[in-house]
Design a protein around this nucleic acid. Structure first.
Lengths: 339, 339
DNA sequence: CACTGGCACTCCCATGAGGCGAGTGCCAGG
DNA sequence: CCTGGCACTCGCCTCATGGGAGTGCCAGTG
């Protein structure tokens, strides 16, 4: 009973603080929520909550604000993901259905998430390691330089210029192209390297150095932990909807400019369909205290291709944000699977 | 004589204000620059400059700050582009030389510009319409579907899937590939369509429908007004090096998120090697008062491929910024031309 | 034992007065 | 045409003051 009410009080504090952005006091609390008890009683509960570390006072004799620990409890136990309205779902669908290619899908998703949550959106491109090779192309630039192009089934195109160090006859180039494609076309990126073993031996001794150069270039393209591309958008929301945020905005903006940081923010791979929420200090970076990240994987039913998420002040509307992130991830997953 | 000194005074005001970010008074002026006259004299000149609209007082009895008109005169008449140091040139070169493909070049250029100028950098991808075809590749996905890949001399790769509506034999496909390449390889995108006229007739009647489909796909790729891509970076600099800027930062951030706006900011096509400076209200957008844009074209010696530039507060170091922008544009032009 | 009303206390913050200092415009003299 | 002097303006910093919101504690009650 007492415990129950304490949790009610915590929930009320979080909700009020999120909507007003001001420390909330005992009197305001009983007025806005019908808790059925007097302010004095609430004060006792608040004192207890403070002892346990769920709320804090910015100054003596000010109202209370939730701590990271308080938000954590709120997210884990006191709130439920808020489903979107039908109109919102339809809007998402029609907005994403208009996409024409992968870049477009990702770009639209970022804008959509940013608009929907009024926060900063981060979307990762579908991982290369899980996609398969559709075609390998070789184009002679000069007799000793070759442009290597790898096309994946997710529509991504990887290219690199390779110095052969030696000349390679046009016929050998054609032969190599054919050999490469029959070896790896349709094969998953991760499995492709195995298929290339022993391929050098099929060429004449004089062609081998050049062939080896191409192979090693291709291997790099396939194996190399490709910097996973990440797109970010909605930075203006940082300022627009967070009037007091500007003070701490700089480290956040800096963080957002680093691809590596964005990737780490999205978190380690987990089950898709499980929302991850990192609150304040739980984030792996300095300067992101005061910032929370809501992320989730997306992909086909069977496997996760990448992640997407949203970043905003710890003082955010978690149920709503989580609902939006989850919904968008589902639609994007479907669209990527279809294409 | 009098006119000369008035211009000296304006120059001094701009320089001091840029470095201190504070209104500059007559006394400070004679102390920091050896103008050889007394503060009272300077005051008369300042009064005249104010009447003419080159400087203004934020409040009565504060120092003066340059107006947009003042900056304009400074840029046009009173300053010269500051060349970079040898160390800076070497740094640019080595940083850009490490790039492996077009995306990488553009990405590095943005980071470089942002770092060098400590402002927001904007770089446009080399325009497709001005580049030439390096190679056309056809890949049979199924007997009736072909993947068309166009590689440009600027390193850009355009792809599209084409439904033939009909089957095309592998030999015909090879023949078509050869014909296409001999027709358009090395030809400018704009001129390429002419070269394709009459090409259909060289194929057998039964192959013609499929060939025609490929041709029309290729024509679309060549002619279509491709959305010009623009990349932006260094938004954190807005906050970092402009302590008072945060107040007006929001409209700027919003503008920077719109590709279309970025494109318009870089300005209409002009001669490469001519630096464009837009100061404050000269920019075509609300909310960019207080913001200046320094931009320039880049490309090969003979023609301009795209533009790049930098955005910052009107109170910026114009000579230095212009020097950096010009130098980076030259190097990028070279690199794009070589690759 | 949990809840309540009352009360003294703390401390933030808005308000306003006062003083300092930087800078100006103007003027008379060189 | 330049200069030194001088009165004046006005932003800003500092300090003191008062109001108000909120708290903790305590004694009283069902």
């Amino acid at each position: 009973m007492l415990e129950d009410r304490k949790l009610d009080v915590l929930r009320a504090i979080v909700e009020d603080y999120v909507s007003t952005h001001e420390p909330v006091g005992s009197k305001a609390l009983v007025e806005r929520h019908n808790l059925g008890v007097s302010p004095a009683t609430i004060r006792n509960d608040m004192a207890a909550l403070e002892d346990e570390g769920y709320i804090a006072q910015p100054h003596t004799s000010a109202g209370r604000i939730p701590t990271d620990k308080g938000y954590r409890l709120f997210v884990d136990k006191l709130s439920s993901v808020k489903p979107l309205t039908g109109a919102e779902r339809r809007a998402i669908q029609s907005f994403l259905d208009g996409a024409v290619d992968l870049d477009d899908i990702v770009g639209r998703t970022v804008r959509l998430l940013a608009q929907l949550t009024r926060q900063v959106a981060v979307v990762q491109y579908p991982s290369l390691t899980r996609s398969s090779v559709r075609h390998v192309e070789l184009v002679a630039l000069t007799p000793s330089r070759v442009l290597l192009i790898v096309i994946t089934n997710t529509g991504r195109v990887e290219q690199r210029t390779i110095e052969l160090g030696d000349e390679l006859a046009e016929t050998d180039l054609g032969e190599l192209r054919a050999q490469l494609n029959s070896a790896v076309a349709g094969v998953r990126m991760a499995d492709a390297p195995d298929r290339l073993v022993g391929l050098v031996e099929r060429f004449t001794a004089e062609a081998r150095p050049a062939v080896a150069a191409v192979l090693s270039g291709l291997l790099e393209s396939l194996v190399e932990e490709h910097e996973e591309r990440v797109v970010m958008g909605g930075a203006a929301n940082l300022v627009r909807f967070n009037p007091d945020f500007p003070l701490t905005i700089q480290p956040v903006l800096e963080a957002l400019e680093e691809q590596v940081v964005l990737l780490r923010l999205l978190g380690e791979a987990t089950d898709p369909s499980v929302l991850t929420v990192r609150i304040g200090h739980e984030n792996p970076f300095q300067g992101l205290t005061g910032t929370s990240v809501v992320s989730v994987g997306y992909g086909t039913e069977s496997e996760m291709l990448a992640k997407l998420g949203v970043l905003g002040p710890t003082r955010m509307d978690y149920p709503g944000t989580m609902g939006a992130v989850r919904a968008v991830a589902r639609y994007v997953g479907k669209i990527v699977a279809e294409s």
